[in-house]
Amino acid sequence: MEPLNALVALANFVIVPATAYGAQLALGALGVTLIYGILRFSNFAHGDTMAFGAMVTILLTWWLQAQDVTFGVLPTALLALPAGIAVTALLVLATDRVVYRFYRRQRVAPVILVIVSMGVMFVMNGIVRFVIGVDDQVFADGARFLINARDFRDLTGLDEGLAIRTTQAITLVTAIVVVAALFWFLNRTRTGKSMRAYSDNEDLALLSGIDPERVVAITWIIVAALATIAGVLYGLDKTFKPFTYFQLLLPIFAAAIVGGLGSPVGAIAGGFVIAFSEVTVTYAFKKVLGYLLPDALEPAGLMQLLSTDYKFAVSFAILVIVLLFRPTGLFRGQTS
């Protein structure tokens, strides 16, 4: 029974949370990587786009809750999500029209666009703080657990419980659906193919009559959808706080770069690599080892490699290792 208990403890504290977190990072990294592939710059406003999308969804959720509309066992936020995506898409399209298009026409160096995105980041951050404030907002409702730790113990007779929160399950399911839809779109539809063509070789795509403004607009809409979904899922799973979304930039970029900037498959792989390493390195393995090792060898300390506050250090270390040894990322992204 002991190895089973160890496995359940590991699943409860490492595998389940890391999978949910990885799915959120993967969705965020997909947005970053798409912008990089099509518009060819690193969008520093992405974290704040996620915060904006989540904020709109939260406001709509509160309105729905006030109208006594709920979604049964599922969080009401899922009902508000499409409208949240629509508002965010309008915002990023307007931003592109007012801000980015000018520089695109001038064909400025990518680094200038990065600085421009810093300005957009300030503005979006200001809007979010202005509208909803800087505090934690809880908006999850519906059933809390898919499997409750006590039920699991009663069911299996093990000492360790396994709890899976509804939000974690929803995160994974939504992420799978979204990613499947995105890949279907990119690989099977005419528009998706034109996007990939534009990403691979801009001049050739222009010659074959692809309308660049249309490609860019569709990219922004997809990115708004990905950012809003990622933001809402992260907010449901943890809590919504504008500043944490800004801090997510680092793991998200790390995921996108580790996977290879510009490569959608890489972004997903990168998201999970970063999430699993963050959670594993900062998890105290005392309990798991306690089950596995004989009593005499039971560890005295927490057996934690690094304290949780150093989770940024983990994304960073992986990022540096990948950059030093395989600068194009795990899946070859764009190098130019």
Partner: peptide
């Protein structure tokens, strides 16, 4: 340039 940016962002957080 973007990689240096992310690397410096990371070291600052650390």
């Amino acid at each position: 340039a973007d990689y240096l940016a992310i690397a410096t962002l990371g070291i600052a957080e650390i």
